[in-house]
Design a protein around this nucleic acid. Structure first.
Lengths: 249, 249
DNA sequence: GCAAAAGTGTTGTCCTTACACCCATGC
DNA sequence: GCATGGGTGTAAGGACAACACTTTTGC
């Protein structure tokens, strides 16, 4: 027999009456601190990087942490994440998406803190980092260690999420300069997916999808024949993108 | 010039010192009520259904609401969602996965409440609903209206999530009885994806994926030739599943 | 015997893969 | 002239879409 005695007093109105004062109801709810944490990814030296700072907490001395902050009373979760991002990178117009919420009661040594993880993708080369406190800098995702809180788990989850997403959506371009060569694009995919791809088939694939605009320029300062540069054309992508993924698992 | 004066006092230690007392730090954080809301999907009469109750709040009189509850101090988010699910459906061993967190400051009329949405898939026929307060019952997903809070948005988001996920993972079987016919499986896909599928190609596809076990039984009480019944074999699926989705968007 | 759905195979098309050669540039 | 990667084409195999007929059962 099931035990229903545990049904929360918050889920039922007593004796079927409607609740007239929602403020009173909500003020009876237990509350918790909520933060956002941003896994900010960049691509440099043919490696996927993530932006980290040293933790402020003595229990996590010398350990690394994602950028995050508590949410403010009046801002939406995504706004909070965007604020963190802008403050640290100075960038606007950056890809940002919610990935998962982590709420293990023991994830923070200072008491229960629920955090909403966001993933951001940006082009490292196009900007300077702002506010370098706590040794803010880019770390290779392949060699993470000494992470504070559950941030190792969070980054791994975001990394898996990214692996999946760049195969089905054109997110990778956010990690590259506006104009890029096909070699750069291929290296990006190879690094994130950890595979080797055939160069000829890779080109055919992307040209067939037909959303790369030849900008009529070429790579510079490369020690070999310069490749053409392309731009991602979002309008073309939107027009041609497939609406229907086949069943396949 | 960027304005960094807004950087939260919570994100930096003063003058670079490490914080010795994380409890003190966390107790300085603003706090918010957190709930979980479950979009519990079932499949019946060739339609995708979602389990709803009448809202308790007078401002949402006669409107429908997802099943949810505040989280308890010591339980993880998923535990809270599972608790809600079990209390209402009496079922254990049910598919449950986090989908997205909704934190719009105005989403709850009683003040800010952040909610973590979970999606659950279960077989309606295999069980009785427990605790029928507030007119708990199954609603067709196609004809939702009069939803309380932002629950219309939440359900739509979960529905889109489901559409995508059943194309790449064998989640659909959670909505069917243990033994099912291929017609039932096809109708499930057709209803959720809102497409018509070719019966012959559909069968070929699933047989080729090779994780359906013929249980040697047949449909009963159908007004036509009974079809064979199959079971989903998770081990076979795990062994044969593709590791690598091709780039395609 | 009629209605309704089960069960099965083939063909053409498209997509994917594997693979090799010449070209342009920097040094 | 040599190293490095740019740029291209083709052929074979596999997956997918379109499509029609026979079989079995309930009524």
């Amino acid at each position: 027999m099931e035990d229903f005695s545990t049904i929360s007093r918050f889920t039922r109105s007593e004796n079927g009456k409607l609740i007239k004062n929602p403020r009173k109801l909500v003020s009876s709810y237990p509350t918790f601190p909520i933060t956002v944490d941003c896994a900010i990814f960049g691509f440099d030296e043919n490696e996927l990087k993530v932006l980290l700072i040293r933790s402020d907490l003595e229990v996590f001395k010398d350990q690394w942490s994602l950028l995050g902050d508590v949410i403010k009373d009046t801002e939406d979760l995504e706004e909070a994440a965007y604020r963190v991002l802008q403050q640290r990178t100075g960038m606007t117009n950056v890809f940002l998406e919610q990935v998962k919420t982590f709420g293990n009661p023991a994830r923070h040594p200072g008491g229960r803190v629920v955090t909403v993880a966001y993933c951001s993708l940006l082009n490292i080369r196009d900007h300077e980092l702002k506010i370098h406190d706590n040794e803010l800098h880019w770390h290779s995702v392949k060699s993470l260690c000494n992470m504070a809180f559950d941030h190792q788990t969070v980054i791994e989850y975001c990394n898996e999420w990214l692996k999946k997403r760049i195969q089905e959506n054109p997110l990778g371009f956010n990690l590259l300069p506006e104009k890029f060569s096909l070699r750069e694009l291929q290296h990006l995919y190879e690094a994130i997916l950890d595979v080797q791809l055939d160069r000829r088939n890779f080109r055919k694939k992307f040209f067939a999808m037909d959303f790369l605009d030849d900008v009529g320029e070429f790579e510079e300062d490369v020690p070999h024949r310069p490749g053409k540069l392309y731009k991602f054309n979002y309008e073309k992508y939107e027009k041609n993108k497939r609406k229907w993924f086949a069943i396949d698992f």
